[in-house]
Design a protein around this nucleic acid. Sequence first.
DNA 1: CACACACTGTAGCGCTCGCTACGCGCCGTG
DNA 2: CACGGCGCGTAGCGAGCGCTACAGTGTGTG
Lengths: 191, 191
Amino acid sequence: MATRRDELADAATDYALEHGLIGLSLRPLARALGTSDRMLLYHFEDKDDLVATILRTTSERSVRSLRDLPLSPGLRHAVLDLWRAVTTGPQQRCQRLYVEAAALGLFGREPYATAVKETNASWVSAVAAHFRRVGLSATAARQVTLLVDATFMGLQLDEPLDSVAQQRRAVCDLADAVEARWGRRSQPGKA
Amino acid sequence: MATRRDELADAATDYALEHGLIGLSLRPLARALGTSDRMLLYHFEDKDDLVATILRTTSERSVRSLRDLPLSPGLRHAVLDLWRAVTTGPQQRCQRLYVEAAALGLFGREPYATAVKETNASWVSAVAAHFRRVGLSATAARQVTLLVDATFMGLQLDEPLDSVAQQRRAVCDLADAVEARWGRRSQPGKA
DNA sequence: CACACACTGTAGCGCTCGCTACGCGCCGTG
DNA sequence: CACGGCGCGTAGCGAGCGCTACAGTGTGTG
């Protein structure tokens, strides 16, 4: 069964996905959830605990939605399908929230820095698994993941700035490049 | 001559590069600058004006440092040199600040969203110029810029998470891919 | 019934925030 | 000299913040 804390965590996550983490304050959040700040701090140790829980929740959702992706026909499509997955539906919001948390963590702010480190680890391994499923070796999958994930992150960071067509173009370019470099019978790679 | 406002803008920019934009508040900033919050609000219309000025200042610094880069020997090196430029010295901090502002802008917060849109435009055109200098056409330079800039942004976003060696590896992979796709006598490109 | 305990509402603490009202000194111009 | 405006310091406003003290209320257990 779901405890009251879990319910609140889920609802708070939805709220954060909508409004972002940065200006998040307890009273408006509690009002939107039909409770009071007092109650949030009863079920969570403090605000940091709540924020960390939110980040963990979004991370779980992201990883789960990635795990449920159908198998892609080849590496190139694996890249394109991943882009599609992270830019459509609720997943888009999760990415945006992650970007926000990562930006906060950049200057070492807690609990963001620690939470981001944890959630990023599971996200990266999920993406790597996505690429291994189309035949990449462990090391190749790790390299592709680092490159592709970084590029996608950057593209989403500038999401309001570039046209969708431009972004799609960049993703296709990236997919082609990845296919050329790591695709087919995986070559070992040079330097 | 430099007005007092310009002096303060410069000093405030240095402070923001050090401490980030997100928690920025007038009183600690003023204390660090040897003045008072009252004075900041005398020389700047309000906090948003100050923040926008800071972002404009870092943007100018970034563009200038990019313009002063020596000519790279070929496209591949242009990518590598750009990475080197944005991850060393004071430029690194500018990028970090931009990432922070972009993350704030993601949820439409002002003045970040507007300021980021403006500064990004001049940054992108500066990067595109960097690639045109090694022989790329205007359209090719724009494509390469979008892809490379996004990837670099993403890599820097996860800067505390990945090892430098991993990042360097990803950058080399990207440089190879870009060289293969757009390098030599520039091919027109397919779909 | 008596009691312990999980849960929740009220009210408020201490603090920081952006911003402002007010008044003082300095300095160039009549 | 008188004056007006620029630059600046002091002091404080109203609001929001995270968080807490306290007083309940309902429920299951002895």
